[in-house]
Design a protein around this nucleic acid. Structure first.
Lengths: 214, 214
DNA sequence: AAAATACTAAAACTAATGTTCTATTAATTG
DNA sequence: CAATTAATAGAACATTAGTTTTAGTATTTT
């Protein structure tokens, strides 16, 4: 049977969360004390110990404000955000950056914070801004931000950013290898796929997410 | 002319950022001291004062770990995330929740963290999961998460979630009031608009963002 | 070169803050 | 009911950690 938090413990958790939201650091024991109208620091300590034992938070001993909230069952993941570099634009006729390596993090590119749930691996995910409406059959339009995991090959059914060598065109499509041909299936099922020789297709990355701001 | 940070100051900023990333709270002066191989706490203090004056961070006096990093020109926005409740689904034939009021925050709904840049006002933004493919002409498909700002009226050109009373259908379209008719224009410009009497349309919210996870 | 300013050092000081101790008062339980 | 256990109080203690003071050494400016 699972432990049920007391009202006071609920209060404390809520307070910590709010405090973290207001300032950028956790509250002290005494902050909690006054914030939750508790008479003594020892009572705060007592309840914090319980909250720790029950897995709601982690405490670093002898460290001021050494409280780390943990995500638990109901709650949301705390570290639910990932910084992603926006490497440039993607549009028909414009090559996709080949080596999404190296000097990110630096001020070279804009970084964007995106929700972590969009991403599976913590690999070198990157973003591309969509320019023009040529991707509309992938349900992506001008101004959208597509999030990609770099990858030079794809599994059938993956949504990929593909470079069509001959046409010198980049495109977002679902990837299906059929013999020595590749079928590029639009995300929009009402539209028709295109077939190209496998040798004409260079996969550059798998699309893991799309973000549109209106 | 803008002030140029010394190497030491760069180091300190980097260290603070990394520390914040590792733990969930800022470092103490002495953490910085040892982390950046600085001989004295006063030197740390000295440089922190400069960093504060130059707008790189904020310090709360007499508060342990009272350092808040500020987003500056180059950098990324720090508080770039917003918690949004996902109220349910949107699909043809299913009404949109009317009162996005009250008991959010509670465990009643799933909360999702989304990038703040999707949102303009800090009003009671909410999310809806798209069910089915009936919204495909709005460049939105099954599984997408649409982010809405509640609003009972719309300006021309706004992307809105509209409830068609007669058809008992919810839909995402651009809104144009033309006389006593409303033109609902698909986001996908290759598709045709639908015209309905204004009395048959109830706007429920403006769409401010779309997030697709693949 | 003298004066002023920027930066570094070491140590001490004080306030902030985690921790502990001892009691006291509810709740539970056998 | 007696005996535990859970929870609350108040106070003191011990570090942690921000601040200040004094002093020395570069760097720059006049």
């Amino acid at each position: 049977m699972s432990y049920v938090l007391s009202q006071r413990q609920e209060n404390i958790l809520d307070f910590i969360e709010k405090f973290l939201d207001d300032y950028q650091f956790p509250p002290t024991v005494r902050d909690i004390q006054s914030g939750c109208n508790i008479s003594s620091t020892s009572v705060v300590d007592y309840n914090l110990q319980i909250l720790q034992k029950e897995g709601y938070l982690n405490r670093l001993p002898d460290v001021s404000r050494g409280i780390e909230l943990l995500e638990n069952a109901y709650g949301e993941s705390k570290k639910s955000i990932v910084k992603v570099p926006v490497l440039g634009f993607i549009a028909a006729g414009e090559p996709i950056p080949v080596n999404p390596i190296s000097t990110w993090e630096s001020d070279e590119f804009d970084n964007v914070d995106i929700p972590a749930f969009l991403i599976n691996s913590k690999s070198d995910v990157f973003g591309l801004k969509v320019k023009g409406e040529s991707m509309i059959d992938a349900l992506v339009t001008d101004g959208d931000l597509v999030i990609l995991e770099p990858s030079l090959n794809a599994n059938n059914g993956d949504m990929v950013a593909a470079w069509l060598k001959e046409q010198e065109e980049a495109t977002l499509k679902r990837f299906y290898l059929e013999g020595d041909m590749v079928r590029l299936q639009p995300e929009n099922t009402t539209m028709n796929p295109i077939m190209v020789p496998a040798s004409n297709v260079a996969v550059r990355g798998k699309v893991v997410g799309v973000i549109r701001s209106l």
